[in-house]
Design a protein around this nucleic acid. Structure first.
Lengths: 231, 231
DNA sequence: GCAAATTAATGATTTATTCAAG
DNA sequence: CTTGAATAAATCATTAATTTGC
């Protein structure tokens, strides 16, 4: 819970629980649409903004990785891990990929069809020994470009709040009382921008996963001319 | 110039020139307001989005740093730099701080009043010797928190496009044909967001330097630590 | 000259690091 | 000590320079 004049977001237990479930369900780097959905869902349980969701996943992923790395290093020092890895070199893979098949449409790549090339090595870094495990993931084809979280930087953020629904299959959604879906308010877009986006779509349409055209338009209002008065 | 179906932004010569001038004028990490202003200005010379501006400054800063670092390393190997540093340990400071006093109101911290604590050291990193120079910049008081570019992530992005004016004193503005002033169109903002922003203002108003309260929200705290590591 | 092949620049993302609130 | 927030570094990916063989 966030204190009244708090400077930073403080997740409610409910929010935290849902976030964690989404994480264990396989969500790692939600895109703008997903973030918007998650945010509006979680906002029913307390104050929250999109950036909080973004940061949470970023931090959580990074720190889980750290924890695991630390743990592994310890285990390595204390024995046997090496054999474990040799017998099942993929068992770490879940770190960066969806854990549940239910979320393949969220992460936009299918681990089953990806080729893994595990590598492991030990080297020196600043005096202390470090163990690196690297998996080169060969993704079959170039997939949905819209994943980019950075898209939120642009003014496009505005447009990204429309549509989106696939979140409904999350375990946490069935566990909690399902809040009513909200309709999001869209801002007008210039004709030229729309045309441009359509071109992009034509270039990139590899996946026909999208349910309606608006969602695929995604979202960009280029600041065509955001008028500003400069003194 | 950007090819028709190009996947990435390609700055026009005009845009590039202006960006470089802004950089040499001292802009390093523009905040949301500044990015929005820059974007709408540069959009007169070609297609551009806020994120392009953001990325450009981030990349340019980082790569300038790299270039300088490399140059210095070379000089070090080839002679005398060490003495240079000892005689004027601050001469690297411009890397992350405003170059021109005209932009103190943009960066919101006055280098003149900052205390610098230069440090230099050599240590081992992964086998090869590394020299680090670090300047700890002691900022007099905790200043405006709103500097964060990350604010653009949140829905507050909307809020940030208002106000803002100080860009006019840039050299590049006087060099190019001055485009006609436009009136900014504002999007509706929810009451809660407004309230929030107001709270932030109330919490952080330490400096009375600003002419109006809204514009003062948008300033920059340059990093409290300007670390340089020489490979 | 002029493409195909390489290499260098640089736009865009991701990951690591750091700061600071609580 | 944990973790939200922010920045910097590393990395990926595409475009532009350039080299090369013809």
């Amino acid at each position: 819970m966030a204190p009244a004049g708090s400077s930073r977001w403080c997740p409610t237990p409910q929010q935290l629980k849902m976030l964690e479930e989404m994480y264990t369900s396989g969500i790692r780097t939600p895109n703008a649409n997903q973030i918007q959905q998650i945010t509006s869902q979680l906002s029913l349980y307390g104050k929250i903004e999109g950036k909080n969701v973004f940061y949470w996943f970023q931090n959580h992923k990074a720190r889980e990785r750290l924890r695991l790395r630390k743990k592994l290093t310890k285990q390595l020092q204390q024995q046997q891990l090496y054999h474990q890895l040799q017998h099942n070199p993929h068992f770490l893979h879940y770190l960066d990929s969806p854990a549940s098949p239910a979320f393949q449409h969220l992460s936009c790549y299918n681990p089953a069809s990806a080729n893994l090339f595990p590598q492991a090595g030990i080297h020196d870094e600043g005096g202390k020994q470090v163990t690196n495990y690297t998996w080169n993931i060969d993704i079959p084809e170039k997939m949905d470009k819209n994943k980019a979280i950075m898209r939120m930087y642009g003014s496009d953020w505005l447009m990204m709040v429309d549509v989106g629904l696939p979140l409904s299959s999350l375990p946490c959604y069935s566990m909690i009382s399902r809040p009513p879906l909200k309709t999001l308010e869209l801002f007008p877009v210039t004709a030229s921008n729309l045309k441009e986006e359509c071109n992009n779509i034509n270039n990139n349409n590899s996946n026909s996963n999208s349910s309606n055209s608006l969602s695929s338009v995604s979202c960009n209002i280029t600041p065509a001319k955001v008028p500003l008065s400069l003194p």
